[in-house]
Write a protein that binds this DNA or RNA. Structure first.
Length: 423
RNA sequence: GGUGAGGUGCCUGAGAGGCCGAAAGGAUCAGUUUGCUAAACUGACGUACGGGAAACUGUACCGAGGGUUCGAAUCCCUCCCUCACCGCCA
């Protein structure tokens, strides 16, 4: 959520930045400014009248105590006028504020100045490419066929017990999942992230805090009986740990990581390009989150991007880093890097991580502040990234490392899998 | 699921219609003192939104929402949450 005071003082710049994000309702900005103006006016009059009424009430108390009943009655008779006025104005104020709130949550975050203009994924900027795309032997298979051939993943069994998009991992397939999770967590810990194990369901307030609600409820599984949502990412519970919190300056940066299963409804997205592990309703992911001082957030973003890249390098996967264009960025982000690995058998890039700086967009909703050098409260910056999401990593690993005699496990993973080959 | 207790500031906890944005203690920060540490003493110490160049100042907030009243943390209603015990259970 953008800050009203910022919009009010930087109207032109806000409009210009929103255009980069290809935002379709720029008129909302002026509506917000107008509502804010009305809000402040209303508060001004309301406060004034309340002040008078408060003073009068105090005076009545004083008069009653000193036994001057008649004088008290005189003032009392007047206070009915204030009472009605106050009621009317408070209702008006509440209404204006609600309208303002409804409008302002529709405004996406402003993109950073380095965000390329553009609308579709084709407009994303390739920041760098690393590693060599492997040449596969003639009989190479896509991962869903490898998964069946080596009995690693059973999609049909998942359909039977739950539905499409809920795979069952078996044998070495299951162990590979566990190995990757442990590897990712260990690497995050080495990079200074404190590990958390978190609830997989969250309440409405948490959904609002990170921006899934209102509006995107269709993407989350909802447990109506208890009014709880299954998390689409660990970002939600981790970031919400700091909802309504004022941190001390020396507590920053906060660095947390956590493994969770993630649940996404992905309503309406079926087809060839989402075959196998390419898109699931339930998947595993290790997430990294940082809460930092505003001046440092872009430096931290690079550092987080570096961490994700180091994981891909250690896994010996060819990858590229995209700087997302305005149109392809998420609602809440100011700058996002996507990491994609090259899937040799599918001959396409697969998104395996997304690292974003949200600046104050989330913290404003969360009321996540810190006490700055002047002792004043100030909104912190939040960042997060996948480090990493498993399914497409598994897909790429299986496909890229396949040989005639089986699938070779990358060296760094062997201590975790305790096998070198899937054969 | 049943029964009971309770939600007050960073924490513990008092307050039971006006003197309450809220005692006291702890924590924290600043200062004084002692050779260091520790202790003692003194002071500061909620948040948000307005107004103001600033000093400062107005309003709101004691789980949430409504009501009674000139006046509500305090009385009434509704809801939410937490804890304890019982039942069930990994």
């Amino acid at each position: 959520m953008l800050q009203v005071s910022y919009i009010r003082e930087n109207r032109e710049q806000v409009l210009e930045r929103l255009a980069v994000k290809n935002f379709k309702q720029p008129e909302l900005v002026d509506e917000v400014v107008k509502l804010d103006e009305l809000r402040r006016q209303t508060q001004n009059t309301l406060d004034g009248i309340s002040a008078e009424a408060n003073a009068a009430a105090k005076q009545i108390g004083e008069l009653m105590r000193t036994g001057k009943k008649e004088e008290a009655e005189i003032i009392k008779s007047k206070s009915n006028v204030w009472k009605e006025e106050i009621k009317k104005l408070s209702e008006q104020y509440a209404k204006v504020e609600e309208e303002l709130q409804q409008k302002i949550v529709l405004l996406p975050n402003l993109p950073h100045s380095s965000v390329p203009k553009g609308i579709t994924p084709e407009d994303n900027e390739i920041a760098l490419e690393h590693g060599k795309k492997p040449e596969l032997y003639a009989g190479a298979l896509p991962h869903w066929e490898l998964a069946a051939k080596y009995n690693l993943i059973d999609f049909e069994l998942g359909v039977k017990i739950t539905g499409a998009g809920f795979p069952v991992y078996k044998g070495k397939g299951a162990k590979l999942q566990r190995a990757l999770i442990a590897f990712f967590l260990d690497e995050a810990e080495k990079a200074g992230y404190d590990e958390m194990m978190l609830p997989l369901v969250v309440n409405e307030a948490s959904g609002f805090g990170t921006g899934q609600l209102p509006d995107k409820e269709g993407q989350m599984y909802y447990i109506g009986e208890d009014k709880l949502y299954l998390i689409p990412t660990a970002e939600v519970p981790i970031t919400n740990l700091y909802r309504d919190v004022i941190l001390k300056a020396d507590e920053l940066p906060v660095k947390n990581c956590g493994y969770t299963a993630c649940f996404r409804r992905e309503a309406g997205s079926y087809g060839a390009h989402v075959r196998g592990l390419n898109r699931l309703h339930q998947f595993d992911k290790v997430e990294i989150v940082q809460v930092v001082q505003p001046e440092t957030s872009y430096q931290v973003l690079e550092q987080m991007s570096g961490h994700v890249q180091s994981l891909l390098q250690k896994l010996e996967l060819p990858y590229r880093v995209l700087r997302l264009c305005g149109g392809d960025m998420s609602f809440a982000s100011a700058l996002t890097y996507d990491m994609e690995t090259w899937s040799a058998a599918q001959q396409r890039w697969l998104e395996v991580s997304s690292v974003s700086n949200f600046e104050t967009f989330q913290s404003n909703r969360l009321k996540l502040r810190f006490r700055n050098a002047e002792g004043k409260t100030q909104l912190a910056h939040t960042l997060n990234g996948s480090a990493l999401a498993l399914p497409r990593i598994v897909a790429t690993l299986l496909e890229n490392n396949q040989t005639e005699k089986g699938i070779k496990i990358p060296e760094v993973l062997v201590p975790y899998t305790r096998f070198e080959w899937i054969d």
